[in-house]
């Protein structure tokens, strides 16, 4: 009997430790005398273990793959995960995102659309009805052929409301598609709200389009990073949008914010108090996935951990990319396709106004063109995207990482935008690992 090399240890106190397998997960709290045994024993006899710790503990640790019979078998089991969740000749597409506009009236300092997306420079700035319609048709056909039932179309950008007339034309068309195919399509729009008026809001409410908006903290913090084109603050224009939705009886139940070096020290629990007074349920706090290299990551981790705990006591979930590995740790990799995001998993198609298709709206990795959508899952570019997910193809530092199977290399854009420097990626690795540990500690205390 062996202890898996993928076993991870997080000391809680003098009495206990949380352990998990860095590919198969299954976090559990064990007494420290068992921790010492696992750390000290290179190989041992089953009966000796059972004699000391009992049959129940033995079976639990075997089921969790902490105790293994051979490293070869363990590696073979890990290798089967990739084939199982990334089958050849079968579409994994689940989501369609339409980049309605490459332009935006905002110039947020951390914007990954402007920092990374080369398609922003294309001459085609606005999505046409024709390209959107053809993309929707192909997407629905692909989903139906694959037996998928959870349809999701997102209007994104840039700022999609710059192209509101085309969105308004697409909504009845999508309804027609739902009726024709007897399906239900979930809709969402990511907007900065600055252009939202009552008519648009009513249209979105009527068509069940979920509105997703961002606000980077209180006025002081927001107006340091979330800027208009003329570099003035945007807080008031965003709040005006919040107010329109609330007056129509559809207040937002949360929002997303981004932490950068400029607003880090403004991000604190008072934004949670504000969200709580408005009856919100979820606040997403992301750390700038491209910049924020120089700031002390320890400060970011301390703040996120503290805010998450504070919000939880007020009934508000605080999530972000940093919570994804911990969320994944609760899943069974044999049943679920564990990934960092839909783009990384190969679930998303994002169509730009030029017709180019990307796995993420901020990526430069082109999967094909919108006319390729019906067969895109067999394209070399798409297959390469999937091949990069194979755990055995990951660098050694990832294979030795405590969240190896749960982070999946992190954000595609972080890697694309920082190809010449490992500094940012190293900082993000630290964020994801330390936040996973912090979340485990908070979960144990619950």
């Amino acid at each position: 009997m062996l202890v898996s090399k993928y076993t991870q240890y997080l000391s809680l106190n003098d009495d206990s430790t949380v352990i998990w397998h860095s590919v198969f997960g299954c976090a559990m709290q064990i007494p420290n005398r068992l921790t010492c045994y696992l750390k000290d024993s290179h190989s041992f006899n089953d009966y000796d273990f059972i004699e000391v710790f009992g049959e129940g503990a033995f079976e639990t640790l075997v089921d969790a793959r902490i105790l293994i019979y051979s490293t070869e078998q363990e590696q073979a089991d890990i290798d089967t995960l990739f084939a199982k969740h990334n089958p050849r000749n079968k579409s994994k597409i689940k989501y369609l995102s339409l980049i309605m506009s490459e332009e935006c009236p905002f110039r947020c300092v951390y914007c990954i659309h402007f920092a990374n997306s080369k398609h922003y420079y294309n001459k085609e700035k606005m999505m046409t009805f024709e390209i959107a319609k053809a993309s929707i048709d192909s997407y629905i056909k692909l989903m139906l052929e694959n037996g998928e039932t959870d349809f999701y179309i997102n209007f994104g950008g840039g700022e999609p409301l710059l192209n509101y007339p085309v969105i308004a034309e697409l909504l009845p068309y999508i309804k027609e598609c739902e009726d024709k195919h007897d399906i239900k399509i979930k809709l969402g729009i990511n907007t900065n709200l600055s252009l939202l008026n009552k008519e648009m809001a009513e249209t979105f409410i009527k068509n069940n389009v979920e509105i997703v908006a961002s606000l980077d903290g209180t006025k002081a913090g927001n107006d340091k990073v979330r800027l208009s084109k003329n570099l003035s603050g945007t807080y008031d224009s965003i709040i005006r949008g919040f107010d329109i939705l609330r007056e129509l009886g559809h207040p937002l139940d949360g929002f997303a914010m981004t932490v950068t070096e400029a607003n880090l020290f403004d991000v604190d629990t008072e934004i949670i108090d504000w969200a709580s007074t408005l009856g919100m349920k979820e606040v997403r706090i992301d750390v700038d996935v491209v910049g924020i290299v120089k700031s002390p990551m320890d400060e970011v981790i301390e703040r996120l951990t503290r805010i998450r705990k504070y919000a939880k006591e007020k009934g508000i979930s605080v999530i972000g990319f940093w919570s994804r590995p911990a969320e994944n740790l609760g899943l069974n990799p044999e049943e679920e396709d564990i990934g960092f995001c839909g783009g990384e998993r190969g679930n998303s198609l994002c169509v730009a106004p030029s017709g180019q298709v990307f796995p993420c709206g901020y990526s430069n990795y082109q999967l094909g063109n919108y006319i390729d959508i019906p067969t895109i899952y067999n394209n070399d570019a798409y297959l390469n995207l999937l091949a990069n997910r194979d755990l055995k193809n990951q660098p050694e530092k990832c294979q030795e990482c405590p969240i190896f199977g749960f982070c999946r290399g992190g954000c595609l854009i972080t890697k694309e935008a920082n190809q010449k420097s490992t500094e940012k990626q190293t900082a993000m690795c630290k964020l994801y690992i330390e936040m996973t540990k912090a979340i485990i500690r908070q979960q144990v205390m619950m």
Binding site: P31, G54, R284, S348, P359, G361
Partner: peptide, 30 residues
């Protein structure tokens, strides 16, 4: 026979937070 250590140990599963599948992010981030 001399008992050197208790035979039973308690192992408690840690309940991790549910996968946040909300729309507080673009569709590709699900």
């Amino acid at each position: 026979m001399k008992e050197t250590a208790p035979k039973k140990v308690e192992i408690k599963m840690v309940k991790m937070p549910a996968l946040a599948m909300t729309c507080k992010k673009p569709s590709n981030c699900h």
